[in-house]
């Protein structure tokens, strides 16, 4: 009895070893995307026409995660997978109205009430992008404005880097942030030419802004109201010429007794 038992133990160990030596099986690549779709966590994308051509807008339940241009759906899907490490599929539903309005530059980002999926970014980067959402279409702000508004007035360069990393350009309008000297600066969604095109489409008149900046104009003052603004505040033509005073620096405006505008906040309000 004992002997057969021992033989049996030995044999079953052999079975266990054979089972262990079986090749490992893989789950097919299609399983994970199918699961994520099922639980409502799948990423999908829309293709939407914009002022800079067709763009791809990726989103999941967490929010909008990526906006980019691509030559084909395949190219976009590959770019998404390599950036986020998860698959993405085409969304057959129509994009919602607030997304389309944002893409068309008809809506201020913070009014669109959209959720963005910015979890890969740092707290500082998220603060920069949230601030950029406040700039209305047709207006621009300098990088230094964002840095000051988020409480890091010395971090102008870091602000520029954060905007350059914006995963959702157009929807978070980093194109509305320009250099103080009037240069438009770079743009991730197709370079400075597209930045100019977008600003023109929104009515910000980049050519006029550049001319003003070149001649040293940084702010418009309102003679009647005794306040001063960025030139695009409320739209570049909103200030009547007869009321308009020109300033080349905050100090000059403040010394002349003008207060910073409460809407565009060209200087810290004391």
């Amino acid at each position: 009895m004992k002997k057969t038992m021992n033989a049996s133990v030995h044999e079953t160990l052999e079975i266990a070893r054979s089972l262990k030596e079986l090749p490992r099986e893989r789950a097919p690549r299609s399983l994970l995307p199918a699961v994520l779709q099922k639980v409502g966590l799948g990423d999908t994308y829309w293709r939407i026409d914009s002022a800079v051509g067709e763009i791809y807008v990726a989103h999941s339940r967490a929010g909008i995660s990526m906006v980019s241009r691509a030559r084909s759906t395949r190219e976009f899907e590959k770019a998404f997978e390599s950036r986020f490490g998860r698959p993405i599929a085409s969304d057959r539903t129509r994009p919602p109205a607030n997304v389309k309005a944002l893409v068309a530059g008809r809506l201020r980002g913070k009014d669109a009430n959209l959720r963005f999926d910015l979890r890969d970014l740092s707290e500082f980067e998220r603060a920069v992008l949230r601030k950029a959402l406040e700039i209305p279409p047709g207006e621009v702000r300098p990088y230094s404005w964002i840095a000051r508004e988020i409480g890091h007035p010395d971090a102008v360069r870091a602000t520029g880097s954060a905007l350059a990393k914006n995963p959702v350009p157009l929807l978070i309008p980093c194109h509305r942030v320009v250099r103080t000297d009037g240069h438009l600066g770079n743009y991730s969604l197709g370079g400075p030419r597209n930045k100019r095109r977008l600003l023109e489409a929104e009515g910000a008149q980049p050519a006029t802004l550049e001319k003003l900046a070149a001649s040293g104009v940084r702010y418009f003052g309102n003679e009647a109201g005794r306040y001063f603004c960025f030139p695009t505040c409320g739209g570049i033509d909103s200030l009547l010429r007869e009321n308009r005073v020109i300033f080349s620096s905050q100090r000059e405006a403040l010394a002349a007794g003008f207060k910073p505008c409460a809407d565009c906040r060209p200087a810290a309000v004391a």
């Binding site: 490992r24 099986e25 399983l31 994970l32 699961v35 994520l36 966590l41 339940r61 967490a62 999926d117």
Partner: peptide, 19 residues
């Protein structure tokens, strides 16, 4: 709230569950 972490959790077990 970090629901996207469900993907790596599935990745850890999908092969073994299917097998």
């Amino acid at each position: 709230g970090e629901e996207s972490l469900f993907a790596p959790l599935v990745r850890r077990y999908q092969a073994r569950v299917v097998a």
